[in-house]
Amino acid sequence: MMELKNVQTAEEYLSYYEEAIEWTQVVKTFPKTYALYQDLGEQFRKEYHQTSNKFFHSLRKLLEIDAQLQILTQVFQRDFDWRFLMEDEDLVEMVIHDKQSFYRENVGLRTTDQVPWGLMYLSEQN
């Protein structure tokens, strides 16, 4: 697996998610969630290659997409017992909703806490 500091392209970055999750199982059991994953990858690539957007707009969008990819990775860890997961539609809703506070929660803050000032929080919403 490539080191994060060596990533140069969107494809290199997204390849982590292909390797981190056993997608063959997800496709069978959670087709809507898999469709979300595919859409997120396409959105990421599109935003990465978008040259007309301002830097902060693109960074905000990439962080929003990445938060959702991170959530999917946490949900579908390879050693996870998938029988106890929620329904496909509920999982998609959770991923889309939780992107709003993912980075705050990841550093131990609550969803009700004020969004801190920092680049990684550009995609966060109160």
Rank of each mutant, 00 (worst) to 15 (best):
N106I: 01
R78T: 06
W82P: 03
Q100K: 04
V95A: 04
E105A: 06
F102S: 08
D66Q: 12
M94Q: 08
K61D: 10
R104N: 03
K54N: 08
R104W: 00
H57Q: 14
A67C: 08
F84D: 09
F80A: 15
N53P: 01
T73Y: 00
R78I: 03
L62V: 09
H49V: 09
S101G: 07
K54Q: 14
T73D: 07
L85D: 06
L59P: 03
R104Y: 00
V92Y: 05
N53M: 14
H97T: 14
S101V: 12
I65C: 05
F76T: 03
H49L: 14
L63S: 05
T51L: 04
E93H: 12
Q77R: 12
I96W: 07
I71R: 00
E105S: 07
H49G: 12
E64A: 08
L69Y: 02
V75G: 07
D79G: 02
F80S: 12
L85C: 02
L69A: 07
Q68N: 02
I71K: 00
Q77A: 04
H49E: 15
Q50E: 15
S58H: 02
F55M: 11
F84L: 05
L72D: 09
R60W: 08
V75D: 05
F56T: 11
Q50R: 14
F56G: 01
